[in-house]
Design a protein around this nucleic acid. Structure first.
Lengths: 228, 228
DNA sequence: CCGGACCGTCACGGGTTTGTCACAATTCCA
DNA sequence: TGGAATTGTGACAAACCCGTGACGGTCCGG
């Protein structure tokens, strides 16, 4: 599944070029030329990252940044700022506006791509390994040991819980049965790999419609999909 | 009153930067570059939270973590671990070393700030050091060492009292038997985990109907429910 | 020295969880 | 299309987990 990148810049030409480069690199670019559109798209499209020009007509990049940060849904969205002058960067970093990285214009598409890749890798590794996990309409809290599917509480056994937690934590990546066995069950191959299937079945049964997030990858294992 | 945050990292530069950012965000950073200093400062300065690098010269982060957990004064001190590799994280959070959260290097100051904020919010809700705790129809006074269930006084033994207090303080979050043993009984004692069950039983017996607040989470431990 | 309060351990029993298996359903490829 | 490989499903017995009552030991005040 392609990762969505929201690009915000008021120069249509530059935007096109960036979008083209991102698409070529395997991302799914979403384009916006002003702050309001950007906020709307950030909410609706759930991009994995935002590239935000500092200079925008009307609401400028800093405002957009602040608003994104203030909403819990987008508070942890990685943001890369584009700035025209090197001098401006001091202001941004120094004042802790909330951007994760910045790139000074002019820059090569290659440079931006590198930064995007790096930032994505960084945030996806650390993305909420804390107690609270939210994927699609699933809510898992490992400290409380509770799970909500579509807002309604679901009672899971200890193993079911660990299994779901692991899949959610490593969402997007396929987990082989062997992998799941060693990571959920702990010990080595004392357990039949088919046991994983049985637990997946029980898990899906309890999760109801939300179980659609848990995919079977034939011949390989299971994975939790990354919702749009 | 600013909240103190204890930062422990052996790289002085990184420490400075983090400290600067925390100060900017309204916290009062306390800096330490090795484990011994960290322990000393944790005792003397009473920080609200500790950010602990896993890699330290001499005593490493895990040791510090364990020692902090073993002393009743710092047992419930929130700890965020900094780790270089994502692979190490399983060991920390998964295996009950005792850290509350972890952040993988490299990270942006914003990421760490978010985590700190989140963890503080989480723990301050329940770890309120005030002497009077009220959950549901339970009333616990740490200073006076008295408990009221449905308004009527209940006589608890010392162990029962500490057990109840811990569960109430950390209400909502599941506490494993191991965790309860180290935090209520202290680490030097090698005590059977089933002992916890017995004390829970005695506690429930004395609390009568109010014992409904104390839930068993099968295969995991015990928790005090949060009456919304 | 005795009795009681408190504590840690243990064995038992019931209910739940779990691993396994056989079989049905599905998917994939020849 | 047909058959082989793979996965979903239902059932079941063993294993496990936890509540419970009982027991012995320690400590302390009378």
């Amino acid at each position: 599944m392609k990762q969505k990148i929201l690009l915000v810049d008021d120069e249509a030409d530059a935007l096109e070029v960036l979008g083209y480069n991102l698409a070529k690199a395997g991302y799914e670019p979403i384009l916006a030329t002003d702050g309001h559109a950007a906020l709307q798209l950030a909410r609706d499209q759930r991009p994995a990252l935002v590239v935000l020009d500092l200079m925008l007509p009307g609401m400028d990049g800093l405002d957009v940044c602040r608003i994104l940060r203030s909403s819990p849904e987008t508070a942890s969205l990685p943001i890369i700022m584009l700035t025209a002058k090197a001098a401006e960067t001091d202001r941004i970093v120094g004042l802790e506006i909330g951007a994760d990285d910045y790139v000074t214009k002019p820059f090569s598409p290659r440079e931006l791509l590198l930064r995007i890749k790096k930032l994505l890798a960084r945030t996806q590794l650390t993305d909420d390994p804390s107690s609270h996990l939210r994927v699609g309409d699933l809510d898992l809290d490992s400290a409380r040991h509770t799970v909500l599917a579509q807002g309604k509480p679901v009672v899971l056994t200890a193993t079911e819980f660990r299994l779901l937690e692991l899949l959610l934590r490593r969402r997007g990546r396929v987990q082989s049965r062997e992998r799941l066995l060693t990571d959920v069950w702990g010990y080595e191959n004392v357990i039949d790999t088919r046991t994983v299937d049985t637990h997946m079945r029980r898990l899906r049964e309890k999760l109801g419609p939300s179980a659609a997030l848990l995919e079977t990858v034939r011949g390989v294992g299971y994975r939790c999909v990354n919702p749009a």
